[in-house]
Computed example of a mutant assay.
Amino acid sequence: MTRLNLLLLFALIACALGVVTSQHKARRAYMDLQKAQTASSRLEVEWGQLQLEQSTWAMHSRIETEAASRLNMRVPDSNHTQIVPVGKGLDQ
């Protein structure tokens, strides 16, 4: 009977250690999940800010202003503009 009691005691201790270990792993995994969700949220905010910044830099009025001020470019007069038809060959 003593051997059976010792065997059951060791089985109980092993099960208890298994429960503690699995709970610890579950808590660690949950903490990692929380960190990943926080990082994901932060990256989504940064992505939105970058899209807003890109749309600001790509505005036609901004490009036109920069072209005029930095590169001294201007819109050509209508008599200097030539319209080329699309889809027609050069030999026609």
Rank of each mutant, 00 (worst) to 15 (best):
A11S: 15
A39C: 01
M59S: 15
F10V: 03
S41L: 09
E66D: 11
T56I: 07
L71F: 13
V84D: 14
V84W: 14
M31Q: 11
E44P: 00
Q92E: 15
C15P: 00
S41Y: 04
A26L: 09
D32C: 07
N72D: 13
S69H: 12
G87W: 00
V20M: 04
T38R: 04
L43M: 12
I13P: 00
L52T: 13
R28Q: 10
G18T: 01
Y30W: 04
R70N: 09
C15L: 09
I63W: 01
A67L: 09
D77I: 00
M31Y: 06
S78I: 05
A39L: 07
A39P: 00
A39Y: 01
Y30G: 02
R27D: 11
K88D: 15
K35I: 04
I13T: 05
T21N: 12
Q49L: 06
S61F: 06
S78T: 08
G48C: 01
H24L: 05
A26V: 03
W57C: 05
I63E: 02
H60G: 01
M1V: 11
Q37I: 01
L6P: 00
L52A: 13
A36C: 00
A11Q: 15
S61E: 15
R28L: 07
N79I: 01
T2V: 10
L17A: 15
K25R: 14
L4K: 15
T38W: 03
R27N: 11
V19I: 10
M1I: 08
K88H: 14
A16R: 02
M59A: 15
K35G: 01
R62L: 15
R62Q: 12
Y30V: 07
L17Q: 14
I63H: 01
S40W: 10
D77N: 05
P85C: 02
N72Q: 13
I13S: 06
L50K: 05
R27S: 14
A58V: 01
L71I: 10
Q34F: 12
T81L: 15
N5S: 08
L8D: 12
D91F: 11
L90A: 15
L17F: 10
C15Y: 05
A68P: 00
S78Y: 03
L17M: 12
L52S: 13
E46V: 07
I13V: 14
E64R: 08
A29L: 09
A11N: 13
L50Q: 11
Q49C: 03
K35C: 01
L52H: 10
Q49N: 11
L12G: 04
V75K: 10
R70M: 05
T21A: 13
G18M: 02
V19R: 02
D32L: 11
A36S: 06
R42G: 01
A58D: 07
